[in-house]
Design a protein around this nucleic acid. Structure first.
Length: 588
RNA sequence: GGGCUCGUAGUGAAGUCGGCCUAUCACGCCUCCCUGUCACGGAGGAGAUCGCCGGUUCGAAUCCGGUCGGGCCCGCCA
């Protein structure tokens, strides 16, 4: 009868068989200790020369050999116990030992503190996954899936799988294309999201749909963005005409994941709704981390009579002056540090980074000499400076968009640097009211701000407004600790309004019919209003488990170049295969 | 596509403003010893053309140019 490592404590006096990997071997010449590891932990085997056959095999064991050991569980004597491991009070006196498989010396270390670089870990992911931390991660992901399914089922959502072989979508990310054999010269595409299918399910009479959906996008990855494939908790609700209906349904699930599942504290039970423009003004970002304050403070009015040339020029050109006050905590920012921050500001489009320090209740250095005593007093009050604390104060004077962007970037960077993020706290927020259309900074042309299929607030009438950039999309993102974890919207189920949405950008009916034929035609046959959203499962799991790289929460991720270094994919294929698909590979 | 950064035994690091490097340390590996260890211990040993190519120099892991690979960021991600 097989017993697991952690169960040995409950089997004192009994004969057990442990199967697992050799975690470590301590050969004393006349006595061999083996720590055998399985998915439950490690247990100590003691092999004595009296069991000659087992002892001889014990001498051959090396790290990561796979063994089966049978023997009696005995209580360890006083002084021989190891309080550091769960099974440290017992050991197995081995009678018989079988080597089930041998192992060559490992290319990466499974046990111990040194960890190989990521490239090697990914190449030998099957070894990397043996590490308890990775085992734990796999279990956590499964646990999260269970909780999501249980919650969605309990709220009368029906899980429906939608096609993986889908169609190329002209909007959005780059597609993965799949050549069709039966339809020569045509292509499927892997879905970037089940967006159109789930909306068609609404037309199909499904009241509430959800899916743990695989999504595919061929875009360059980031530390919080996987290459290629990722998972979303995708959901949609028929007859929801107000985004609040969706938000109210999903909020308890996310809170439960943050607390019960991740064991963290919520910054607040009430999840704020922050309009996009307000988020940009206060945080310089549409995905602000609310665990720390450091809000952007506008000082345009307060400094309108400034003597400082840079500010004067900005104001003359209709710009704004904004600032953030950064608590110093340990020591005042050095010249070198401020230079470093300046580089960041410049990268975001700032000309420089005017600054001043606030020490011992007064402004010093930097632009301090340009501040009148009246201005100093106003700044102190507007920036809510605490005389007992020292601050570095950083300014942006530019057009509103750039000023917000610069300080927003700096706010996030400095919060990290100053360790203002509490890892045990989850701060949630809904960012709402995204602009439907935006002007492209470079071309000056009008384009969709986000998702063309969401409902413009105010419907058809709103679309006829003169200032198109003032049209608001009924769209909402959920932000968790500075990461966008969910995006959703009230969908546009009205063909007339949908045509108009594209008409604003100069696309005619034929364009819409050609590209979104199934959807626009379905909407003509009694489409119910509907709204929904989709949560990024991987990113959420990353933040909830305190990882800073999303690849850490995926069993077999691709690297930054889109390569699976373990399987060596993508790879070339036989000419016979490409011939069958009517494809010709052009050598580069 | 662009910027920054890293590349040294199987693994992780040190050395990187030219010579004390015949390249250091730890883990791992091999041989021998060891009956109470638990990251066992002890003695000994093997293992690196310093990512690759070229250049400068009396001399290059170290400087320069190129190239390949990784990571982070920008663009991109409706």
């Amino acid at each position: 009868m097989r017993t697991f490592a952690q169960d040995t404590v409950n089997n004192v006096g009994e004969t057990v068989t442990l199967k697992g990997w050799v975690n470590s071997r301590r050969d004393h010449g006349g006595l061999i200790f083996i720590d055998v590891r399985d998915h439950t932990g490690v247990a100590q085997l003691a092999i004595r020369p009296e069991q000659a056959e087992a002892f001889a095999r014990g001498e051959q064991l090396r790290d990561e050999f796979v063994i089966s050991a049978t023997g009696t569980v005995v209580e360890r004597e006083e002084g021989l116990r190891n309080p550091n491991i769960a099974t440290g009070g017992v050991e197995v006196k081995v009678d018989a030992l079988t080597i089930l498989n041998r192992s060559e010396p490992l290319p990466i270390q499974v046990m111990g503190e040194t960890m190989a670089n990521e490239d090697l870990r990914l190449k030998y992911r099957y070894l990397d996954l043996r590490r308890p931390k990775m085992q734990d991660m796999l279990k956590k992901r499964a646990d999260m899936y269970q909780r999501m399914r249980a919650y969605m089922d309990a709220h009368e959502f029906t899980e429906i799988t939608t096609p993986i072989l889908a169609n190329s979508s002209p909007e959005g990310a780059r597609d993965f294309l799949i050549p069709s054999r039966l339809q020569a010269g045509k292509f499927y595409a892997l879905p970037q999201a089940p967006q159109q299918f789930k909306q068609l399910l609404m037309v199909g009479g499904v009241p509430r749909y959800y899916q743990l959906a695989a999504c595919f996008r061929d875009e360059d990855p980031r530390s919080d963005r996987l290459y290629g494939e990722f998972y979303q908790l995708d959901l949609e609700m028929a007859f929801a005409e107000d985004g609040e209906e969706v938000r109210a349904v999903v909020e308890p699930l996310i809170k439960q994941l943050a607390t019960d599942f991740a064991g963290k504290k919520l910054l607040s039970e009430d999840i704020p709704r922050i309009p996009y423009l307000e988020a940009m003004e206060r945080y310089g970002s549409d995905k602000p981390d609310l665990r720390y304050e450091m809000e952007l403070t506008e000082l345009t009015e307060e400094l309108k009579n400034t003597e400082f040339g840079v500010f004067k020029n900005a104001l003359k050109e209709g710009g704004v002056i904004k600032a953030i006050a950064v608590p110093c905590r340990h020591h005042m920012f050095s010249r070198k540090e401020i230079d470093e921050f300046t580089e960041i500001a410049k990268k975001e489009g700032a000309g420089g980074l005017p600054s001043v320090t606030y020490e011992a209740g007064g402004f010093r250095g930097g632009i301090a000499k340009f501040l009148s005593s009246a201005e100093s007093a106003t700044l102190e009050q507007k920036l809510q400076l605490d005389a007992g604390e020292d601050y570095g104060i950083f300014f942006a004077s530019d057009n509103r968009r750039v000023a917000n962007k610069v300080l927003g970037k700096l706010r996030a960077y400095l919060a990290d640097r100053q360790e203002l993020k509490d890892p045990n706290v989850i701060a949630l927020a809904w960012i709402v009211d995204f602009p439907f259309y935006e002007t492209d900074e470079k071309t000056g042309k009008l384009d969709f701000g986000h998702n063309p299929f969401s409902m413009p607030k105010g419907g058809l009438a709103a679309l006829k407004r003169e200032d198109k950039t003032a049209i608001i999309a009924d769209q909402y993102d959920m932000v968790m600790n500075g990461y966008e974890i969910c995006s959703g919207g009230v969908r546009n189920h009205n063909p007339e309004i949908l045509y108009k949405v594209f008409d604003v950008l100069g696309f005619d009916k034929a364009y819409v019919d050609e590209r979104f034929g199934a959807m626009i035609s379905a909407f003509k046959y009694g489409a119910p209003p509907h709204a929904g959203c989709a949560f990024g499962v991987d990113r959420m799991l990353m933040e909830l488990t305190g990882e800073s790289n999303v690849r850490e929460v995926v069993a077999f991720p691709k690297n930054g170049s889109g390569v699976d270094v373990m399987m060596n994919s993508p790879s070339t294929v036989d000419v016979a295969q490409t011939d069958e698909l009517n494809l010709r590979i052009i050598e580069h």
